[in-house]
Design a protein around this nucleic acid. Structure first.
Lengths: 202, 202
DNA sequence: GTCTATAATTTGATAGAC
DNA sequence: GTCTATCAAATTATAGAC
């Protein structure tokens, strides 16, 4: 079982790229082997099956997308600061992993029962209850507009992630080329933060 | 070339379901034939290849997702009314086609060059320039907060579509079961409208 | 138009030499 | 550990009878 670290990492890097671009069904073991500059035999030696390899890649991608959310939402911070920090740090995570959201969400949508239930029982599933209560309390005290916590959270997450998942659609809609779209993405940290803070003002 | 209408419609209904749930690569002609209650031979008689069938289904799905946006954005309406109408009517469209967004966006992301450029030259590509100018003018005149039109549009679209694309992720995050999530979706028409209108107040 | 049977590829996975 | 060669199953597509 003592595999070569360098080779394993090459495989994981290659498999991430292929799975993220093509999805589980569209990915080809041959393509992954080529991209890792090894042969199919060796690929199967490291990861017994396509399923096993996929599980490894998907788990890593899922963590990339979820861990930051849970951490920031549970942090001990005033609500406005928490919003600012979330938008800023999560947009950074997404910028560094721009293909991950479409991959993770697309695959999640294809295996709803299997995966979702599995994760809901997972020990380090992201927790948001602290943030939910914090929003509710702020609303009750009149510090922010009366808004249901769940919807504020959905709106925050939506405005951060959708520009990545919906990139081609928005490009078409706004007639932006690649460069122009990148510029838009860079502006969003400030724009989204201001948008949310104004939206919750009492 | 004179095909049977009933059969063609059965195929399209079946193919829509399978492609939307499994994506292009995951869809099986056999499964589509079974679902349409015909055999593979007949399926190929109506649609020469999987590619041709996919093109038909994808175009229809794309239209479902885009046509309403263009129409409302170009309507002659005051800005606040336009926002209200967009959220209300687009959320209705999405509720009736809840599997379409993930399908369309996932496939779009897999063929960026091919499709996006093709659509950008398409005659009835959605137009938003009127709405962009309308927002800019309102901002210049101080009727709304100074916000870049593109970002307001991205935010509107994000908050409407993401709850469908990101459904399993949000369910995990907020620990909501199917029923609870449906309730959340129903509340969004009012919540999102208010959120946006407050966010743009001067 | 609709069916059955089958061809032609593709693809995940294994065996065995080095 | 790594490679080549090959198998077995799956899958798109076609041929031909009715």
């Amino acid at each position: 079982m003592a595999k070569d670290r360098k080779t394993e990492e090459k495989i994981i890097r290659a498999a991430s790229k292929v799975f993220e671009e093509e999805g589980y069904a569209g990915a080809r073991m041959q393509q992954i082997a080529d991209s890792a500059e090894i042969n199919k035999g060796l690929l199967h030696y490291y990861f017994k099956s396509k399923d096993k390899l996929f599980d490894t890649i998907f788990s890593a991608a899922f963590d990339k997308m979820m861990s930051k959310v849970g951490k920031i939402f549970q942090a001990e911070l005033p609500i406005e600061e928490k919003i600012e920090m979330f938008v800023s740090q999560y947009l950074d995570v997404l910028a560094k992993n721009s293909y991950v959201p479409t991959f993770v969400l697309s695959e999640l949508n294809k295996r709803p029962e299997n995966i979702v239930n599995k994760i809901l029982n997972h020990p380090n599933k992201p927790k948001v209850n602290l943030f939910v209560q914090q929003i509710q309390t702020a609303a009750d005290e009149g510090k922010i507009r009366n808004i249901k916590p769940e919807h504020l959270i959905i709106n925050m997450v939506s405005m951060c992630i959708f520009p990545y998942v919906g990139k081609p659609m928005i490009q078409i809609l706004l007639e932006k080329n690649k460069t122009e779209y990148k510029t838009l993405l860079k502006e969003r940290k400030a724009e989204v933060t201001q948008f949310i803070l104004h939206a919750i003002k009492p």
